[in-house]
Nucleic acid binder design. Structure first.
Length: 222
DNA sequence: GTCTGATCATGA
DNA sequence: TCATGATCAGAC
């Protein structure tokens, strides 16, 4: 893999140098085997780009470039630049949530600075022909942060009050909570309705497609 | 099981 | 058509 980037500028320039290349070209260059499709390797493009850019965090629940304070996210887009999917952020704690605040949350940490790498990835395009687009280095503006924060606080409050089973993906304007597990038999500890511990499906935070669409649009207009 | 990387697949 | 709920692979 490429060496770790030493600065935000170096990371961004490296990301810019990948724009216009296809996933097939990148995979060949880096010695990655190309799957037929993403059905069985959903994280393949993300891992390929991590490798190309020298990300180091592995499976730790921290930013991809902790020294730089930057999180890397690939995002599938169509030809008009609109995201095709919602964006996973991180898992959520479902117990021991007292003392959690927006500013010490994983959501805040991960989203405080993000290097977005859009990939033209309409489903009809063969995986190896999908093309890396221009990277975007983003931090939430005050309006975006307020939206994220109020959604996060609403959801965390429900979790703290034992209402995890009442939360669906319909909650939250820009940030939603959805299952995040190997399958729906997975279980983790959570706060129950009477304050006791219960076992429930693990959940994770996702950014709604509308939110990331608006975010990308801001940069395409520059 | 818990976390990362995410997209799939089906019902509304 | 599209978002919700479900799922896949790998590291540890």
């Amino acid at each position: 893999m490429t060496a770790k980037p030493q600065s935000e500028t170096e990371l961004f320039e490296r990301a810019q140098s990948l724009a216009g290349l296809s996933l097939g070209e990148l995979a060949h260059r880096e010695g990655f085997a190309i799957p037929k499709d993403l059905k069985r390797e959903k994280g393949w493009s993300g891992q390929l780009l991590e490798w190309c850019l020298g990300a180091s965090a592995g499976s730790k629940p921290i930013q991809d470039f902790p020294e730089l304070g930057i999180e890397l996210k690939t995002i599938p887009i169509d030809a008009s630049g609109k995201p095709l999917e919602s964006t996973y952020v991180c898992i959520t704690p479902l117990c021991n949530v007292t003392g959690s605040t927006w500013h010490n949350s994983n959501v805040y940490n991960k989203l405080s600075r993000v290097l977005w790498i859009p990939i033209l990835a309409e489903r009809h395009i063969p995986l190896d022909q999908r093309v890396v687009a221009n990277p975007i280095l983003w931090s939430p503006n005050p309006q975006q942060e307020q939206l994220l924060r109020s959604d996060w606080e609403e959801i965390m409050e429900m979790i703290a009050f034992g209402q995890i089973e009442q939360i669906t993906a319909r909650h939250g304007q820009v940030l939603q909570l959805r299952p995040k597990a190997a399958n729906n038999k997975a279980r983790t500890s959570a706060i129950g309705p009477n304050g006791q511990l219960i076992q429930t499906l693990p959940r994770g935070y996702y950014l709604r497609t509308k939110f990331t669409a608006a975010l990308l649009q801001d940069y395409f207009q520059l």
